[in-house]
Design a protein around this nucleic acid. Structure first.
Length: 501
RNA sequence: GGCGCAUUGGUGUAGUUGGUUAACACGCUGCCCUCUCAAGGCAGAGAUCACGGGUUCGAGUCCCGUAUGCGCUGCCA
């Protein structure tokens, strides 16, 4: 039997990185086993579901290169069938109508309210399963329903015994039926609820393995009860450890902002393969310890058995621009930028330069070779694709900024440089051919003649040519910037004009 | 409150059926390289394996308890 797995997000916001990881693991498992990876949008919460969110989920999967097989299933399309199925359960006596008037609660303090109610009931010795309508005679139930009295449909959970299943990640799971309340399947307004819909859709889609967040572990017992009620085979379950914030709290949009959104990583210059690689390592580890893994290698090495049980902390520092997200994620992105095949990086740099209005069509044409060399030169110390348009700006435009600290350190601090820099420009203009080697030769010769240390000229040149104090080997920079532009920038008066002198 | 799950250096993880100095990656420190910053190379700091009991010749690995965290407990998903 071919495995069929699914990623089933609810479209109530952007694609969360935890959800993205679930998608990744499902996808990996499908590809590993030669099975199918399906996408189901759980849009039954009409209040909160948005089309924009659905779009962002699809975009996110595309960005991570997680292709899904078959058509997307929208859960709301199946609501009618879900209603029918729930009513059938009532007919069969496996579920019952609950005529208790609906309690309205606000979403806010609900967790606390639940705990308080449980405490109160425990104090009064009330069994939370004791529902007056559970054993209402069928005739009376039918009559009241026919009379238009509103009711919810609840599953009749067995009184005695326990539910058991083996989770591929968490092992043997057992829960006494006495701990499971008669869950509501259909709201009094006829709206099918989560547990009902997931099970029915999973049955309908032929899902063989349910791989999802650990927050569903306890509820799995309820869902198994439903599989049994519908006489359907129970799939295998693999629950994933959760991804937590640095303070070990649940990652949430409200508290942690955009760092938890997948699109943030795309927008802030992550290479998809790098982020995918990082995500794979959150909760899973490769058998041989090799951590830099391509999509294909990930598929090859992936196994559900390699998934850990402890929740993972996703480390980030909101107010530190250098560490705005997890250090390892940043490192991995840098690693990809400097080592991935240049041909794969080029289009990404192109997109970045385009959005920064630095792209010129010549880079695809006459200056293709130059462009490739320039990217090759500067990629080695960049962390994100954004760096190509910020730190790398001077390579693609005359309109770049001088870093004040760099100017002070490499230019203003040494007043004697004001004369030799333009003189160096004169010298460089006559170098033929103009390469890193010949530029070095010329600069060193000039250094000797003018009696100015080579280091001073080199560092000064770097700041004159790029506005910065750091960067690639200076002679390579001369070659890439070119003779004319180099000479022009060496003669610039901007550092003195802008930062005094 | 009840039930469940988890707990290895700052972070992510590895530690096969219990067996010597707890491994790897990121981060951190120093040195080398060097025109700067990275990268790279080398060296190093950092873990009484949450705590307390037990079983055993021997436990990070098994058992019990405690603590902490997280999850579920909803006519949310």
């Amino acid at each position: 039997m071919t495995t069929r797995v699914r990623f089933a997000p609810s479209p109530t916001g952007y694609l969360h990185i935890g959800a993205a990881r679930s998608a990744l693991f499902n996808w990996l498992y499908a590809r590993k086993t030669g099975g199918k990876f399906l996408l189901r949008v759980e849009d039954t919460d009409l209040q909160r579901s948005t089309e924009e969110s659905t779009r962002s989920i699809i975009e996110g999967l595309k960005w991570l290169e997680l292709d899904y097989d078959e058509e997307i299933v929208f859960q709301s399309d199946n609501a009618d069938e879900h209603r029918v199925a729930a009513r059938r359960l009532v007919e069969e006596g496996q579920a019952y109508r609950d005529f208790t008037p609906k309690e309205t609660r606000d979403d806010k303090g609900i967790k606390q309210e639940i705990a308080e109610r449980a405490r109160a009931q425990a104090a009064e010795g009330v069994d939370h399963r004791s529902n007056p309508f559970r054993n209402l005679p069928k005739e009376e139930s039918d009559r009241r329903a026919a009379g238009g009295e509103p009711f919810a449909i609840r599953l009749k959970v067995p009184v005695e015994g326990a539910s058991r299943f083996t989770d591929i990640v968490y092992g043997e799971q057992e829960r006494s039926y006495s701990e499971i309340e008669d869950l509501v399947l259909l709201r009094s307004d006829g709206h099918p609820l989560y547990n009902l819909s997931v099970v029915l859709d999973d049955i309908e889609m032929g899902i063989t393995h349910v791989i999802r967040g650990q927050d569903h572990l306890t509820n799995t017992h309820k869902q198994i009860l439903l599989y049994q009620a519908f006489g359907a085979p129970v799939p295998k379950f693999a629950h994933l450890p959760l991804i937590l914030a640095p303070n070990k709290a649940k990652l949430s949009k409200r508290k942690h902002g955009e760092v938890v959104s997948l699109t943030t990583y795309r927008d802030r210059g992550f290479v998809p393969a790098a982020f995918r690689n990082f995500l794979a390592l959150l909760g899973w580890s490769p058998p041989d310890g090799k951590e830099i893994l391509s999509r294909e290698e990930l598929v090859e090495k992936f196994s559900l058995e390699g998934i850990g049980r402890a929740n993972a902390v996703f480390n980030f520092h909101e107010n530190d621009p250098r560490h705005w997200t997890d250090d390892k994620a940043l490192w991995m992105n840098a690693e990809y930028i400097r080592t991935m095949p240049l041909a794969e990086l080029l289009p990404m740099v192109k997109d970045e330069l385009r959005s920064a209005k630095l792209w010129r069509e010549e880079y695809d044409d006459d200056e293709r070779e130059w462009f490739e060399k320039a990217v090759e030169l500067i990629r080695h110390r960049f962390f994100t694709l954004k760096d190509f348009s910020s730190q790398g700006r001077a390579y693609f435009s005359e309109d770049f900024d001088f870093d004040e600290a760099a100017v002070k350190k490499n230019i203003l601090k040494e007043p004697r440089l004001r004369e030799p820099l333009p003189a160096l420009a004169d010298r460089l203009e006559n170098v033929e051919p103009f390469t890193a080697a010949t530029a070095e030769e010329a600069l060193r010769a000039f250094s000797e003649e003018a009696g100015v240390k080579a280091g001073l000229l080199i560092n000064g040149s770097r700041t004159m040519l790029t506005g910065q104090a750091v960067g690639p080997s200076m002679f390579e920079v001369f070659e890439i910037i070119g003779r004319e532009r180099s000479a022009m920038r060496l003669r610039s008066q901007r550092p003195w004009n802008e930062f005094g002198g």
